[in-house]
Simulated assay, not measured.
Amino acid sequence: MDTSSRVRDGSPIVATAVAIGLAIFGIAATQLTTLPAFLLDPALITSPGDASITARTALMVLNFLGFALAGGIYLAATDRGWSYVDWRMPTGRGWIYVLVGIVGSIAFYFLVSILVQLLSLPTTDNQVMEYVAGDQTMILVMILIVFFFNAPAEEFLFRNVIQKRLYDAFTRMQAVVVASLIFALVHIPAYLAASGDLLSIGPDALFATTVSLAVVFGGSLIFGYLYAKTDNLVVPTAAHAAFNAFQFGLLYLALEFGLEVEDPAQSVVADLVFVLS
């Protein structure tokens, strides 16, 4: 039943606090799950682009498994169980929403690109680009990762767990906004870290980070809306994966044909990695 049509009995403050706590828990979990990758190749710490593809792939996969682990622990601890997970094959209507999500996210991406160029707005890179390092093979690997690990793990934690938990205290559209805001804010460390020394970040870097976070927030609204309308995790996951794969595909083609790559939404190789330290 649509949460907007029934009485909500949860506290907005408590629900928001739980949602923020789950996001932080997800980030903390990735710090533990990615440790084997750093042990496999210490170059990931000092010069990520020089690390082996095996190590970089392991890092990305383990990072997203951390999000899934955090969500799974929450479901187990609250006795919600796996029946709480809205994972099922979409109906015809569901696939229409997937298509709308893909088209909408790509249109949003290009709209932002145009605005950033016209207004000469700065953006900052997400740390994930340090691990891709202009390596075409790694880009192809990342396309597989977004389909099998990135999109499923992020949508599970931020949509099926966090956004759904917010339904107890907010209308569905309010929950989409709050979950998307949390989703954007947890990117702050990754964007600031990519800007340079965290102790010497100036106003320009902070402004560039704000622009990039606004883009992440907008993209998250699209995927959150898809989940709110369908109650099916497969729908936003499929749209999210296709969108990220599209972005990596553009990057691959740019490198393949030696094009100047100036991606106005730079770091928005959508919400790929939050905190990789």
Rank of each mutant, 00 (worst) to 15 (best):
A37Q: 03
I73A: 14
A175E: 02
N232W: 09
V116H: 02
E260R: 04
F108W: 12
E260G: 00
P42D: 05
F257L: 04
V215Q: 10
S212L: 13
M60Q: 13
L233R: 05
V132K: 01
T46P: 00
A151V: 04
V98A: 09
Y252G: 01
L213E: 12
G92C: 02
W87Q: 01
A151Y: 09
L157P: 02
P122K: 05
R8G: 03
N63G: 07
S195L: 06
R80I: 07
D9C: 00
M1R: 07
F67D: 05
A241M: 06
Y191V: 10
Q117T: 14
G92T: 13
S4G: 10
F274V: 15
T3K: 11
V215T: 14
P36M: 01
P264M: 08
F156P: 05
N232F: 10
F149I: 04
T209A: 14
A208N: 09
L115G: 08
A29T: 10
M142W: 12
G72Y: 13
G81S: 07
P42M: 03
A228F: 10
G196K: 11
E130S: 12
L119D: 03
Y84D: 15
L99Q: 01
G258L: 04
D231N: 15
D79K: 13
G92Q: 08
L35A: 11
V61H: 03
F38N: 00
A175D: 02
G249V: 06
H240D: 06
G92F: 12
P203D: 13
A175L: 07
